[in-house]
């Protein structure tokens, strides 16, 4: 069987699916705007009041940039398939993949990328607008290297976040009531990834500790690559670490699913 053809079909189904829910996505973007706005006003008040140039090592412009970019990125990389997968596991939908010559992982991954393709495009357009605006305002120094690296790390972040979520999904084999669990984990992951605030607000030690977890590499790291906060050397190092996490989580997810599947088929679902 022609693998490429199959995955092209799955990919385009993902694209079509996202087209179906495009209104939802745009309204979601509007919804994401409000917290960004609120944070914008809060930070404005904070910087006005403190009178300092930099708080948590961010200048006023940088923190606003961070807030906007983090909001966009976390919207982009958000996975929404947890419930589908959990449903597949609970209600036996998984069986129809088990009997077909297709890998469930491959199917989910490709359809995820398919669903994200258009949003990736839209987000890129928005980002171009923001970057252009920020550059002309003098907040951001545009460097080609950073742009390229940002684009790469963004795909990496997408992949990493997918893998993390996929691992978490394996817990649906074991836990009874799963939807709460997903709410908790996705929110926690978002906080630890720096999706709400830059990680520096937790204090230096926490930032250092978090460097050893995969979470900053989904939001915090790509955003800072673009904004120029990350040093050049740290940028490449971070990219390597991100790759490392991707590999690690890839293996972990294969392992977790392998074990769970064995149990699943043994028990008969």
């Amino acid at each position: 069987m022609n693998r490429r053809k199959l995955y092209t079909a799955v990919f385009s189904m993902g694209v079509q699916h996202s087209m179906e829910y495009r209104v939802h996505f745009f309204l979601g973007l509007i919804g994401a705007m409000f917290p960004i706005l609120v944070q914008y006003f809060i930070w404005t008040a904070v910087y006005q009041h403190s009178g300092q140039d930099a708080l948590f090592s961010y200048s006023y412009g940088q923190i606003i940039m961070y807030t906007i970019l983090a909001g966009l990125v976390s919207k982009l990389i958000a996975t929404q398939f947890e419930h589908q997968i959990a449903d597949d596991i609970k209600n036996g939908g998984l069986n129809k993949y088990l009997i077909k010559p297709i890998s469930y992982f491959g199917y989910r991954l490709i359809s995820f990328f398919g669903q994200k393709a258009i949003y990736y495009g839209i987000t890129v357009m928005l980002l171009v607008g923001i970057i252009w605006f920020a550059a002309s305002g003098g907040v951001l120094k545009v460097e080609a290297v950073r742009l390229v690296l940002f684009a790469i790390t963004l795909w990496g972040a997408l992949l990493l976040n997918f893998l993390i979520a996929y691992c978490i999904c394996a817990s649906a084999f074991y836990l009874h009531e799963i939807s709460y669990f997903f709410v908790i984990t996705s929110l926690l992951v978002n906080i630890l990834s720096g999706g709400m605030f830059p990680l520096e607000i937790f204090g230096d030690s926490v930032v250092k500790a978090l460097q050893y977890t995969p979470f900053p590499y989904t939001i915090y790291f790509p955003v800072n690559v673009l904004s120029g906060k990350t040093e050049v050397a740290a940028m490449y190092q971070g990219l390597l670490i991100q790759c490392g996490w991707i590999v690690l989580f890839f293996l972990l997810s294969r392992f977790a699913w392998h074990v769970s599947m064995k149990k699943y088929s043994a028990v008969g679902g």
Binding site: I42, S50, I201, F202
Partner: peptide, 23 residues
């Protein structure tokens, strides 16, 4: 637990307020 985690997210704002001594 779910609501506590949401609450935690909200408390981050409190953290920011106190760490920057916002008036």
């Amino acid at each position: 637990i779910v609501e506590s985690v949401y609450l935690l997210a909200k408390l981050l704002y409190v953290l920011v307020v106190f760490r920057t001594d916002l008036h």
